[in-house]
Amino acid sequence: MTTGEVLAGRAYRESTTSRRLEFRRQLGYFLLLLPTLLLLLVLFVYPIVRLIVTSVYDGNHFTLVHYRRIVEVDLYLRVLQTTFTIALQVTLLCLILGYPLAYFLATLRARTARLLMILVLIPFWTSILVRTYAWMVLLQRQGVFNRWLLELGLIDEPLRMMYNRIGVLVGMTHVLLPFMVLPAYAVMRGIDRNLLRAAYNLGASPFQAFLRVFLPLSLPGVAAGSLLVFILALGFFITPALMGGRTDMMIAQLIETQIRTQLNFPFAAALAAVLLVITLVIFAIYNRLLGIDKMFGGGY
């Protein structure tokens, strides 16, 4: 069908769409959403809110003592800061490594790309414990990489690639990279290649065509991938605890300790609430800034 027909169809549809029809359409959408919404309200929002209430209500009266502790003791704000820094670094690394890979996969024939995608999924199937052990074998002072580098004469002293921030980033990026590559690839796959051809025909260099046409169109995938990686990174603690240095402590670990060792549920709930609120605020700003809804595919 030609563009003319598409436009004609649209005009036809718009002219007959009454308010009532539109209302029914929106009601239909809402019904599609309803099961998920109910599930989350009953099994997530309600229980979490109930738990978080214990952080401000000690059974008899309202209290902010736990939140005061978070603000007043350096440790908690520092660990929160470390957590967000690490999450940001991991997100950037995933972006730097994942975007070109997704782009490359999207330029291949679909079936070749799907076969290579199997490799991208491999980190998922190794238990975190063996995976961490494997990194130990590869990265530590007397590990495989250091031995190679020493033999090749590229370094004189073993590099410290583990038990510090590098170890954290290597370990976390490895597990989180698929969360960047898959959504980015999914969106890139859907981009109409003719648009690029059109850009070439209009005199754009491949780089310009990429920058002005492909990149903006791939943004929803990148945005989704970055969001997943960032949020998931915030909740990590086993990998940083095993592969990081003493300063690489993340907030989820403190929450865990509060519950498992100190048995202080209200304080743990307060820490979780702070993490949740900060993250949701970032998410809201991010959504607003990128304005994904308005920029792309906005049919309304």
Binding site: V73, D74, L75, R78, V79, R246, T247, M249
Partner: peptide, 9 residues
């Protein structure tokens, strides 16, 4: 524990 973690990090 709080003091130790503070010292550690």
């Amino acid at each position: 524990t709080e003091q130790f973690n503070d010292w550690l990090t």
